[in-house]
């Protein structure tokens, strides 16, 4: 087992991918494999590589091919980001423009109605939208944070200790990837129902605390980041196991932990089946955004409503992107350095 250290800012490592007994390749991220964090060095390297490519050796790197590839990639970017353009444009329109401008017109602005839409979304459906957004932040934030702590502890236990049943626990972790969520969620729902948890935030929080995938990531990460010798040394210095975990392991695991948190956060933010099951039939006040938007999309009769549902749904969708986008941009450093651990996802 290699003891390469993928912690951000650490010394350069060799580029050998870790290969953990039957677990497929987990590639190390580019930034870390390509050298030190020193900017100059990286630049020098890039220049060098450009120069290398400029050499007459590479017959393939012709201008035309390059342009073709670039054009292909450009199309892919339009495909990826284009729908969001439509969403932005559509959310500035009033209902009548929305239905009046079809086809190509739907890709450009009509009468600018964004402020009115914005005002309406906070009163539409009794103004629940903001509440749902806060709920989503709460569920994803708290759920992922607790899951991260539990997973790190479990991953650490699995990676750096020998104990009876360890194989079984890890086997269960991997096997659980195969379990359909319906098989787990419906019986869990019945249990939670009899405990009076259904409809409360606990019904979505508790299931999010236990994430086998995060445990798997934590184990792989710790095996790479925490050399056993370090732990032995700390023990000899007289540190207790708990203290080692919090003062040694956790410190070295900042990037790993952040990555686990990030992936769990995105997963929880997108989670739909569990909230639908656990909260769908209960009061609106505990819904996350996904459920609120789903409810709006299926609204049949707007008896007494004076605001159009479609434009609310469109603006609601756009606003729902913002927290996740902010979060991802804020976590960009970890996202770039650590997310390739998600290669196993």
């Amino acid at each position: 087992m290699s003891t390469t250290n993928p912690v951000a800012g650490a010394a350069p490592t060799d580029s050998a991918p870790q290969d953990d007994a039957g677990v497929p390749v987990v590639a190390l991220p580019a930034q870390e494999t390509s050298g030190t964090s020193s900017k100059d060095k990286r630049r020098a390297k890039r220049r060098e590589s450009l120069a290398r490519r400029g050499l007459p050796v590479g017959a393939g790197q012709s201008k035309t091919t390059q342009l073709l590839v670039l054009a292909g990639m450009g199309l892919a970017v339009i495909y990826s980001a284009g729908p969001i353009w439509w969403l932005i444009v559509a959310s500035t329109k009033g209902q009548s423009d929305l239905y009046a401008s079809t086809g190509f017109e739907s890709l450009w602005f009509a009468e600018f109605n964004l402020w009115e839409n914005l005002q309406q979304i906070f009163i539409y459906d009794d103004g629940y939208y903001l509440r749902w957004m806060l709920n989503s932040v709460l569920y994803a934030g708290v759920g992922s944070f607790v899951a991260m702590l539990i997973s790190l502890a479990a991953g650490y236990g699995l990676a750096r200790y020998e104990f009876w049943g360890k194989k079984a626990v890890f086997g269960a972790v991997v096997a659980s990837f195969l379990l359909p969520s319906a098989l787990l969620t419906i019986p869990l729902y019945l249990q939670f129902s009899s405990w009076g948890l259904v409809g409360t935030p606990w019904a979505v929080l508790i299931p999010s605390f236990i994430s086998p995938f995060s445990v798997y990531l934590a184990k792989v990460y710790i095996e790479g980041a925490i050399p056993p010798e370090l732990l032995e040394a700390a023990r000899i210095d007289g540190a207790g196991e708990v203290r080692i975990f919090f003062q040694v392991v956790m410190r070295l695991m900042t990037t790993g932990a952040a990555t686990i948190f990030l992936l769990a956060f995105v997963g929880n933010w997108n989670s739909f089946f569990t909230p639908l099951t656990m909260l769908g039939t209960a009061g609106k006040e505990n819904w996350p955004l996904a459920l609120g938007l789903y409810a709006w999309s299926g609204k049949r009769t707007l008896a007494g409503e004076t605001i159009d549902g479609t434009s609310m749904l469109i603006l609601g969708s756009l606003l729902a992107i913002i927290p996740l986008a902010i979060f991802m941009i804020a976590m960009q450093r970890f996202w770039k350095t650590g997310v390739t651990l998600g290669a196993v996802k």
Binding site: K299, T301, G309, T310
Partner: peptide
């Protein structure tokens, strides 16, 4: 027309 798209 589906009632889901009530406006339509």
């Amino acid at each position: 027309q589906t009632f889901a798209d009530y406006a339509a």
